[in-house]
Amino acid sequence: MERLWTPAWIARHVAMVVLVVGFLGLGWWQVTRAAGGNTLSFGYAIEWPVFAAFVVFVWWREVRHTLRAAREQATVPAPSAAADAEPAVATPAVRRPVRVSRVPAAPADGVDDGELAAYNRYLSWLNANPGARPGDYPG
């Protein structure tokens, strides 16, 4: 439970309380407007408490996630000092993307495809002549 009393978590608790009270207050304000004859406010009177419930749901989910992570860390056995193997490196949850250079693949049999070469010449001609139509190709 002490993980939930860090400065970051205290800010989350305060934000949750402020948002829920604010959303419920706005919902009550819409109820009073709806009672005064504004029919559109009936929808908003329902919407604001739903927003408050969503804030409570997200807060509760984060609390459970934090407590579950703390429990899992406590149950992980300590590595034995007798093991001479390299320590296992934990895989990060988010990894950096791998950059791959793309090069054209060589034909499997080593012989160029004549139709493919002609098509590539056609595409190169179209790229070099942006205003041309495909029927203008001289090849």
Rank of each mutant, 00 (worst) to 15 (best):
I10P: 00
I10S: 00
I10Q: 02
A11Q: 10
R12T: 03
R12P: 02
H13K: 09
H13C: 08
V14P: 01
A15V: 00
M16Q: 04
M16N: 02
M16A: 03
V17M: 09
V18H: 08
V18E: 07
V18M: 11
L19Y: 06
L19W: 03
V20G: 03
V20W: 03
V20F: 01
G22N: 11
F23T: 09
F23R: 13
L24N: 14
L24F: 08
G25W: 12
G25C: 14
G25V: 11
L26M: 14
L26Y: 07
L26T: 10
G27Y: 01
W28Y: 12
W28L: 15
W28N: 15
Q30E: 14
Q30F: 04
V31E: 09
T32I: 10
T32Q: 13
R33H: 06
R33A: 12
A34G: 07
A34L: 02
A35E: 13
G36I: 08
G36M: 04
N38Q: 04
N38H: 08
T39F: 00
T39C: 00
F42V: 15
G43K: 03
G43S: 03
Y44Q: 09
Y44L: 05
Y44S: 07
A45Y: 02
A45G: 05
A45R: 05
I46D: 05
E47Q: 06
E47M: 06
W48Y: 12
P49M: 06
V50Y: 02
V50I: 07
V50R: 07
A52G: 09
A53C: 11
A53K: 05
A53Y: 06
V55P: 06
V56M: 08
F57K: 00
V58Y: 01
V58H: 01
W60S: 02
W60K: 00
R61G: 03
E62G: 09
V63Q: 04
R64Y: 02
H65E: 02
H65R: 04
H65K: 03
L67V: 00
L67T: 00
R68L: 00
R68Y: 00
A69M: 05
A70T: 00
A70S: 06
R71W: 04
R71E: 04
E72G: 03
E72T: 02
A74M: 04
A74L: 04
V76R: 13
P77E: 15
P77H: 10
P77R: 10
A78Y: 09
A78K: 14
A78V: 13
P79I: 12
P79V: 13
P79R: 15
A82S: 14
A82N: 11
A82P: 07
A82E: 13
A83V: 09
D84F: 03
D84M: 07
A85P: 02
A85D: 14
E86F: 01
E86D: 14
P87N: 06
A90C: 01
T91I: 09
A93C: 08
V94W: 03
R95Q: 12
R95S: 10
R96I: 06
R96A: 14
P97L: 06
P97V: 10
P97Q: 11
V98D: 05
R99I: 15
V100C: 07
V100S: 13
V100Y: 12
R102S: 13
V103K: 13
P104E: 14
P104D: 14
A105L: 08
A106L: 12
P107G: 09
A108I: 11
A108H: 10
D109R: 15
D109G: 15
D109C: 11
G110H: 10
V111C: 12
D112F: 08
D113Y: 06
D113F: 06
L116Y: 12
A117G: 05
A118E: 15
